Amino acid sequence: MTASSDTNALAIAIVGVGKIARDQHIPALARDPRFQLAATASRSGGVQGVETFETLGALLAARPDIPAVSLCMPPVPRFAAAREAIAAGRHVMLEKPPGASLAEVFRLEALARQAGVTLFASWHSRAAAGVAPAREWLAGRRPKRIRIDWKEDVRKWHPGQAWIWEPGGLGVFDPGINALSILTEICPVPLHLTASTLTFPENRATPIAADLTFTDGDGLDATAGFDWRQEGGDIWQMEIDTDAGQLRLLDGGARLFIDGQETTLDDTGEYPTLYRQFGQLIAEGRSDVDAAPLIHVADAFMLGRHLRGDPFHD
């Protein structure tokens, strides 16, 4: 089953049927009674039993009955697709990151507002089970030290995906921005970047590793290390020492520890949570376009000290 059979469900189309769509979006929609997967647009194959179009333009012209689209293609072509869908009066959900540049994101936000449609810049890691409880625990506490380690094997998670190594593909910030989306969601004080060191393979245009330093302007020690050369298991963790205890998020936010004790969490899944939020935004006539994680990435490139590393071969 690929879609809800509820006649009251909102018809939605997926644009870009690649790995993330097949692994996360399609299963989430199949379990969500609020939505019905009514069509796809993709050059890499569709979904059995669902009408497929080669282009978004063809889909929009043929299916005016579909009010919402979820854009799952890489970030560089996403602006043109989102603009086309908004101009056609459709609600739009954007995979992370919401654009290849900040200007694109802010332009789309303005276009959606003018068109009176919902635009949702989704950050799936914010929907991890431990993130909301972490935000609640940190509220009213003063962070003294923050350390993020986000390290994985690019060959495992992005096999053969050449676009991530091209300008706009973000390189190691493709997973690293997940950590930044959690940080900007839970940190009770505003942070800005003060320094970054970016390591680029000599044959690639985007970084394979990054070390970042942040400040709140008031003495907070905050650092992050991202690396795509990890071997021996993924590391997705965040440790925050405060004036009233320590918080640790492990497994990308799926596990939460307070002062060394693990907290029992209610995990409904990241992408089911995102689609529930998208449905609520549409019902309420609102948009949610938070560019804060992408601002940190842009600052990392602006402030970055560039190092050249060994060539990378997939």
Rank of each mutant, 00 (worst) to 15 (best):
R141L: 08
R141T: 08
R141W: 05
R141D: 08
R141C: 04
R141V: 07
R142I: 07
R142D: 00
R142M: 11
R142L: 14
R142F: 00
P143E: 11
P143L: 12
P143K: 03
P143R: 09
K144F: 02
K144P: 05
K144Y: 05
K144Q: 13
K144A: 10
K144C: 11
R145L: 04
R145I: 00
R145Q: 10
I146W: 02
R147L: 09
I148Y: 05
I148T: 05
I148V: 11
D149N: 14
D149R: 13
D149I: 09
D149E: 14
W150F: 14
W150E: 09
W150D: 03
K151M: 13
K151C: 06
K151F: 01
K151H: 12
E152K: 12
E152R: 15
E152F: 09
E152I: 11
E152H: 14
D153V: 03
V154P: 02
R155S: 08
R155M: 08
K156P: 00
K156I: 06
K156A: 15
K156T: 06
W157D: 10
H158T: 05
H158V: 01
H158I: 10
H158R: 08
H158Q: 03
H158K: 03
P159F: 12
P159G: 09
P159E: 02
G160L: 12
G160A: 01
G160W: 13
G160S: 03
G160I: 00
Q161F: 15
Q161T: 06
A162T: 10
W163K: 00
W163N: 05
W163Y: 15
I164G: 11
I164H: 13
W165V: 05
W165Q: 04
W165R: 14
E166I: 03
P167T: 06
P167V: 06
P167S: 08
G168V: 08
G168F: 06
G168K: 00
G168N: 04
G168M: 07
G168A: 02
G168Q: 02
G169R: 03
G169Y: 03
G169D: 13
L170I: 02
L170E: 09
L170D: 12
L170Y: 15
L170F: 14
L170Q: 03
L170R: 13
G171T: 05
G171R: 07
V172A: 06
F173K: 07
F173H: 04
F173E: 08
F173D: 01
F173L: 11
D174G: 02
D174M: 03
D174W: 04
P175H: 15
P175R: 15
P175G: 05
G176I: 00
G176R: 05
G176M: 10
I177F: 06
I177P: 03
I177G: 09
I177W: 07
I177T: 08
I177C: 11
I177Q: 12
N178R: 10
N178S: 13
N178G: 06
